[in-house]
């Protein structure tokens, strides 16, 4: 029975990584930048909910909508004020800038909201379902369901909509896209806004389960690993990568030793990078000489 519980608990744990990986991949696909501060952006959005609800006295849904709205503006700000001016600098500079954004958010939240963890309201009524000895919680079911809805929506958007196609065109060949009339800067700004809105949605799903503290943003590192596992370019790959990482961690801890959990999980990751550098869902990149 424990193996079923391992799966039932490992999947939601992995979905938390998937939600982070999804937007790291989205931003990377769209703008080539790896956003190392994305986890902290999620934590920031969660703090926004607490600020609006606790200090503003607003109902939870108002706080969530406000957080989504402010996050969207913040995403636009990241692009317009930081990454757009840096667009001609080497990629490494832009990546360091995202690290700086993450650290500034984390320490800013610690300074303003204090170092202690904050209680976060549950989005769904906390309930535990006993499925023949396998326990599943309502919060975890909601997280998994919403993660799949977001992925499906993004997937359809890129496959079916004209705007989605424009984004793919701008990503693959910015110069060519601008010649055919696509505003590359608008596309990039759009990607940052979408990723930031998803950060706020993820925040509401994650914070009640992970406990809101300035350190919650460190889940960004796990999200980054999940993205690599999934191939770094594939949105479904990011979801599968996250779930796999969650399951590998859980199984390694249970069957081998909890002390060696990370050693095993990250050895698997290194193995994937060595033997399948394009990840599980990525396409191998061939260069003609």
């Amino acid at each position: 029975m424990d193996i079923l519980q391992l799966i039932a608990s490992g999947i939601p744990a992995g979905v938390m990584y998937s939600l982070v990986a999804l937007c790291i991949v989205l931003i990377h696909n769209g703008t080539n930048v790896v956003h190392f501060g994305y986890g902290d952006q999620i934590a920031f959005a969660a703090y926004l909910v607490v600020i609006v609800q606790t200090f503003g006295g607003a109902p939870l849904w108002v706080a969530i909508v406000s957080s989504i709205f402010i996050s969207a503006i913040f995403g636009l700000f990241i692009y317009a004020a930081i990454l757009a001016p840096l667009r001609r600098t080497p990629l490494l500079v832009q990546i360091i800038a995202t690290l700086a954004i993450g650290t500034a958010l984390r320490e800013g939240m610690r300074a303003f909201m204090g170092p202690d963890p904050w209680p976060f309201p549950a989005l769904v009524t906390p309930k535990i379902f006993d499925l023949g000895g396998v326990f599943v919680t309502s919060a975890n079911i909601a997280a998994v369901a919403i993660a799949f809805v977001i992925t499906a929506a993004l997937f359809m958007f890129f496959k079916l909509s004209k705007y989605g196609q424009a984004i793919i065109a701008a990503c693959e060949n910015a110069k060519g896209a601008s010649i055919v009339g696509i505003s590359v800067s608008k596309v990039f700004a759009g990607i940052w806004i979408v990723a930031s809105v998803i950060a706020a949605i993820s925040a509401v799903l994650m914070a009640p389960v992970l406990t809101l503290s300035p350190e919650m943003g460190l889940i960004g590192i796990k999200g980054f690993c999940a993205a690599i596992l999934g191939g770094f370019t594939s949105l479904p790959g990011a979801i599968v990568g996250g779930i796999l990482l969650g399951l590998i961690e859980t199984a390694a801890g249970y069957y081998i030793s909890t002390a060696a959990k990370d050693v095993v999980a990250y050895s698997v990751l290194i193995g994937v990078v060595i033997f399948r550098p394009q990840g599980l869902f990525g396409k191998a990149q061939l260069k003609k000489v």
Binding site: L6, A13, M16, E249
Partner: peptide
């Protein structure tokens, strides 16, 4: 953030 293996 997840402690399933320890807990089981």
């Amino acid at each position: 953030t997840d402690f399933t293996s320890q807990i089981l």
